[in-house]
Simulated assay, not measured.
Amino acid sequence: MNQTTQQPLPDVKAFGKVGVLYGGRSAEREVSIQSGNGVHQALLTMGVDAHLFDTGERSLADLAQAGFDRVFIALHGRYGEDGTLQGALELLGLPYTGSGPMASSLAMDKTMTKRVWLQHGLPTPDFELLDAQSELRTVPDRLGLPLILKPPHEGSTVGVAKVIGYSDMKEGYAQASIFDDEVLAEQFIAGRELTVAVLGEGRAARALPVIEIVAPDGNYDYEHKYISNDTQYFCPAALPEDVSNQITDIAVRAYRALDCAGWGRIDFMLDANNQPWLLEANTSPGMTSHSLVPMAAKAVGMSYAELCVSILSGAACKVHSPPRNS
């Protein structure tokens, strides 16, 4: 089993002044505001000296001068989850939660993520990267129908389209290309939608219980993720033990393959033959009232506030300078 056992919480006074980075400039700004507010309030209730900092409204110069001893990244999408901010924090020498610049960048790029997973022998649906509409007529012949079109550098199902027939390709491509210069075409896997939260780093990384997501008509879009109450969640998912163990094992292997750290979430489809298929990795998952990592943590007896403190305790710079020759 890969599931975590709860560790004693650290002395929060040792964290010093903590910045909660939220908001930002991505298409997921509104979700990030919800996540940031939730994390901020949770840290305050645990006695942490926490302060909100909106990276969409304030500059890196402001961040450098804010006097934070460490930061909790509650940003989603570009300029927060994609390695750009992580690189800046490394230059500032400011410890931060989650994965480092390289892992964040890889995980934010769905195409590169799938290439890394394939290199490690991990199962992910067939795909093609499209950069021109001229390919639209032939892609269904190779990937089959239905298929999924998505912007490879966005999250939260932003711009994702399910294509049922050839005639839907142009509209689906247009929807996805609003958010990206490229469009990822992916084989559609019919089955159960699952997700696994992972905490820790390297050999210490462990999975939380599998969550099953049941959305109306199987449509787990932005509306059903963050707004509607119609989506159902089952944690732990009702799965045979061997299947559950296989999924959590693959989740941890997928997380480690990208060199993720701190925390993250790995999304799956489980087909009719109980074969799991990796969809994507999230290195800064949502922390809203509808979010899944807090749900999985609750299943092992960890409250939302305890989860936030646990994640914050792992804040660190990931790039280390080589020793200087004397």
Rank of each mutant, 00 (worst) to 15 (best):
T111I: 14
G98S: 10
L75F: 00
A66D: 13
A107Q: 08
Q34T: 11
G36W: 03
V116L: 14
R70S: 12
D49R: 09
G67S: 05
T113Q: 09
S104Y: 06
H51M: 11
V31M: 05
G93M: 10
K114T: 09
F72C: 13
T55K: 00
M102L: 15
G80C: 09
Q86L: 11
P125R: 05
H120C: 10
D49K: 07
A64G: 14
L44V: 13
E57M: 12
S104D: 09
L92N: 01
L122V: 05
T124G: 04
G36Y: 04
Q65N: 15
F53N: 12
G38R: 09
T111G: 10
L43S: 03
S59Y: 05
F127E: 02
D82H: 04
G77N: 00
E128H: 08
P123A: 08
G93S: 02
H51F: 15
D126F: 02
G36M: 08
L122A: 02
N37Q: 15
L52Y: 12
D109G: 05
V39P: 00
K114N: 04
L52P: 10
L129G: 10
Q41T: 12
H120P: 10
L91P: 01
A50G: 09
L92Q: 07
M102W: 14
A107Y: 02
L85S: 01
L52M: 13
L92M: 12
Q41S: 12
T124H: 00
I33M: 14
F127N: 00
L122I: 01
R58Y: 15
T124N: 02
L118F: 10
D131S: 12
D109S: 02
K114R: 13
E90S: 07
G98V: 00
L130G: 10
A88K: 13
E30F: 01
S32W: 11
E128K: 10
T97P: 11
E81Y: 07
L60D: 08
L52R: 14
I73F: 03
V48W: 09
V31T: 03
E90W: 03
L91G: 00
D82I: 00
F68E: 01
G38Y: 02
G100P: 04
G121C: 01
A64Y: 11
V48Q: 02
F68K: 09
T84A: 10
K110S: 06
T45S: 08
E57A: 10
S105F: 03
F53P: 12
S104T: 03
H76G: 01
M102D: 15
V116C: 14
M112E: 11
A74F: 10
G98T: 05
R58M: 15
A107F: 01
M108S: 06
